[in-house]
């Protein structure tokens, strides 16, 4: 009985996380369109609801009621599985992401994460690596040259950028002496990692952009040359699952940037609850990602590879080396 009772808070937390994450892309799409519009000197969605606030709902209804089309030559099973495969990892990542120090409630201590794993960071990197399978499967199953090219680019890009990304956080792990995210945050008491590890942050940020396939690294879905890349053949609900996954990856990245390099929930003004302060920072990073998207052109495939292997990888290795020397 005791064991079952201890499951209750976990289940409640899981329900909250899943619920929030499922709904989060709705305001995010609105936000992205508004940010895009204001950068481009136009009003953006204005018709549905106040300043287009209900536009995401209208979009959702449109996407859900559209014909769910599967190309005749496609591999039907893989084609249906791919969006789910792409969507699950960003959800899983949130298992290990804490949003504050443990709080006292109903006489027990409740951690503000589903599970504060002691190898949290490793878990996150590993799980988010699975996301690329969704892209690969989508491209392969569509049986379209555009989609295959998109997923080919995606594979190469993911592999190339996961390495500097993994290396760039090693410096942070060395400083904290732990892979537990809550420990990493508390190690930044007084001084944020971005100050100590500027190169690490740079590499992490850039390779994060590439991992999330955002401009200037959005080659897998470069509409300029590939139409829509790996999800060219997708429509309706399956397409929206890809969109959902894309937005969640952005949220995950924003969280990781804040937790690893910007002190997590630490350092906020006293009147703000720590969690709100964390979410503000995360919101800022989400805004930065969207801002970049409407400001930069896109790299070419070979240039992208060159940046990954010739710039970011040596930089991240250098970063580990320097951190090691300083710590010794």
């Amino acid at each position: 009985m005791e064991n079952v009772l201890s499951l209750v808070p976990v289940l409640i937390k899981m329900a909250i996380v899943v619920g929030v994450l499922l709904l989060l892309p709705l305001p995010l799409t609105w936000l992205e369109r508004k940010i895009a519009a204001h950068i481009q000197q136009r009003p953006g969605p204005m018709r549905v609801g106040w300043h287009g606030l209900l536009q995401p709902l209208a979009d959702a209804i449109k996407l859900l009621t559209k014909e769910d089309h599967i190309p005749a030559e496609a591999d039907r099973m893989l084609f249906s599985i791919a969006p789910v495969v792409a969507l699950v990892p960003p959800f899983l990542v949130f298992v290990a992401i804490p949003i504050g120090d443990p709080i006292q409630m109903f006489g027990t201590e409740i951690a503000l994460s589903i599970s504060d794993l002691n190898v949290g960071l490793l878990f996150i990197l590993a799980v988010s690596g699975i996301g690329v399978f969704g892209t690969i499967l989508a491209g392969w199953a569509s049986n379209s040259k555009y989609a295959v090219l998109g997923s080919l680019r995606s594979i190469a890009q993911m592999i190339s950028y996961e390495i500097p990304m993994g290396f760039s956080v090693i410096g942070v792990v060395m400083l904290a002496g732990s892979m537990q995210l809550s420990q990493i945050v508390s190690s930044q008491q007084g001084l944020w990692n971005v100050v100590v590890q500027p190169i690490g942050f740079f590499v992490f940020f850039v390779s994060g952009l590439a991992e999330a396939q955002r401009i200037p690294f959005d080659l897998p879905e470069a509409e300029g040359d590939l139409g829509a890349g790996y999800h060219t053949e997708y429509s309706g609900i399956r397409f929206s699952l890809f969109m959902l996954a894309e937005y969640l990856v952005v949220v995950v990245l924003a969280f990781l940037n804040v937790l690893l390099f910007f002190g997590g929930w630490l350092g906020g003004p006293a009147f703000l609850p720590a969690t709100i302060w964390l979410l503000l920072k995360v919101g800022f990073f989400i805004w930065v990602f969207m801002w970049l998207r409407f400001t930069f052109p896109r790299y070419r495939y070979d240039q992208l590879m060159a940046i990954g292997w010739k710039l970011l990888l040596p930089l991240s290795l250098l970063n580990i080396l320097v951190s090691g020397f300083v710590m010794l």
Binding site: A36, I39, Q40, Q41, R42, I215, P216, D218, A222, G224, F294, T295, F296, P297, R298
Partner: peptide, 16 residues
């Protein structure tokens, strides 16, 4: 041309 290489915003400016 910038839009073809990925920078969407410039086209909106020139259209304005």
């Amino acid at each position: 041309l910038p839009m073809d290489v990925g920078a969407m915003t410039s086209l909106l400016y020139t259209m304005r």
